[in-house]
Design a protein around this nucleic acid. Structure first.
Lengths: 127, 127
DNA sequence: TCTTGACCTTCCAGTTACTGGAGAGATTAG
DNA sequence: CTAATCTCTCCAGTAACTGGAAGGTCAAGA
């Protein structure tokens, strides 16, 4: 499988697949005579694993860690749960921040008449 | 006022204040004989304006736009409201994404026993 | 007066996770 | 055979800073 087939199968851009190989996340198993990267199903599975983990907001380094656990037959589910729980807490923290941001900004937006006059409570508040 | 006094007054790191000058967001009004940047109260007010806008998640370019409106006596509150409303919609979109992410991950975390055995629904789901 | 330490300068590099493009070689279809 | 498509490597850029090196400046104390 050449890189574009692998990238389609994994749902990732070709550039990204190459990038993941560069940073040592998922190497192409081998090269063709012409030097083309050749992928097999196992690599594609790893790429899919990474794509999904990234969609969950795990950083590349967390993906590296998860991938290590994914490939490790002896890992305990406790280790995986620890990482996922940490990530969940980060999401919850982000949600709280976003909520207070939202409320404050929504208040400003509703209190601004939004007409052609120059007085604006948003600017007054920011300045 | 030297840069460190201005940075304290504005609540921003010195590096960031210098950076904002480099990208033409807030120039230091003048330099001392020794070449030190000298800030006045007006610059500090602009820095505070930017810090608060950044805390609201406006990008640097949006800050530039808002700063233009802030300094423009002829701007209408409608222009400001337009930018703030756009930002509010982005926040709401982000909240929805984060919520579905949260629910999915929370489901996985609760379904994982988190013991010393290797079977783990989180890994099963991601892989 | 000298020195010490805090403060200031510029410039370069690194961060995160890619993305775009140039220039060149390989492969495939018609 | 040629044109289109694919692939390669390498370089540079994104956003918004942050860290550090090397060196100039300033104020206070011995």
């Amino acid at each position: 499988m050449n890189i574009s087939a692998a990238s389609k199968a994994a749902g990732l851009p070709v550039k990204t697949v190459r990038y993941y190989a560069d940073i040592g996340l998922v190497q192409a198993p081998s090269r063709s005579n012409a030097g083309y990267r050749t992928y097999d199903d196992a690599s594609v599975r790893k790429l899919v694993f990474i794509r999904r983990s990234r969609e969950f907001g795990f950083t590349i380094e967390e993906c590296r860690e998860l991938l290590g656990l994914y490939q490790d037959q002896d890992r305990t589910s406790a280790e995986v749960k620890r990482i996922a729980t940490k990530r969940l807490e980060e999401i919850e923290e982000k949600q709280r921040e976003l909520q207070s941001l939202h409320d404050e900004l929504a208040h400003l937006v509703t209190s601004c008449r939004g007409d052609h006059r120059p007085d604006c409570p948003i600017i007054d508040y920011l300045g």
